[in-house]
Amino acid sequence: MGSSTVIANLARNLHELDQDVLVIDLKSNNLLRLHFNMDWCNPNGWALNVINDQPWFNAGFKCEFGISFMPFGRITYENKQCLFNEKIENNWLSNQLSMANFSDKKWIILNVESELNNLSIQALNYADKIIRVIEPQATCLGQFYDSIQSNYLSNNPSLHDKCLYLINKMMPLSELDHEMSLVFKSLIPNQLIPVKIHFDENIKEAFAQKTTVNIYAPNSGTAKQFRTLATWLMLHFSHKGAA
């Protein structure tokens, strides 16, 4: 539970601020949908449609609160190989999304796999903003400077410039977490979003309840943090992003 939880909560809060939101899950773990109360046994998703040569956008769902989302779908390992190697050509994502002709006001939030592959690279290039979810820990600091993803991003100035960083799962009681987030702040003062998402039991419980925290516990600390995050994003940018 990292980026999927963040995205689901963010989408809900943007929606509550009267924004038009579309969430697309590009992660093969297919977990995002569960935050929106989709049946666990329902295998549908855009990837499954692509494999079956059906139009991918038929896989759109709308949750009971009115957010449009598109689950990845349940596919096998062979199908996944096939999907990435054959079905998805270069510029597939941008072509498909521009064909759909969404309005400029719409927030399209892509849940991108942390592993670099054909699809995630397309998503990163397509997005207007990239939000990287980091945890305030020494491991993350290491990866921040030296990992395949970080190197890929820092070698492309255009990608590097549209990166934002969000601190997630900060343990309120951990001294080290506070210190590490201070270090991150000093390293990337302009790219770090000034809202931190804490580690909160409410988040785990909300997921277990198949919903997001602002519905499960609207007055909890993290619900408020996600609200602040959504407002912050709305103030600074007013469309599309990827995480």
């Binding site: 600091l141 590490m180 270090v183």
Partner: peptide, 17 residues
């Protein structure tokens, strides 16, 4: 700023990175 320098010096890994 002084605190950040202290933190960096406090943790070996952070300092190295």
């Amino acid at each position: 700023n002084e605190e950040i320098i202290q933190i960096i010096n406090k943790w070996a890994l952070v300092k190295e990175i």
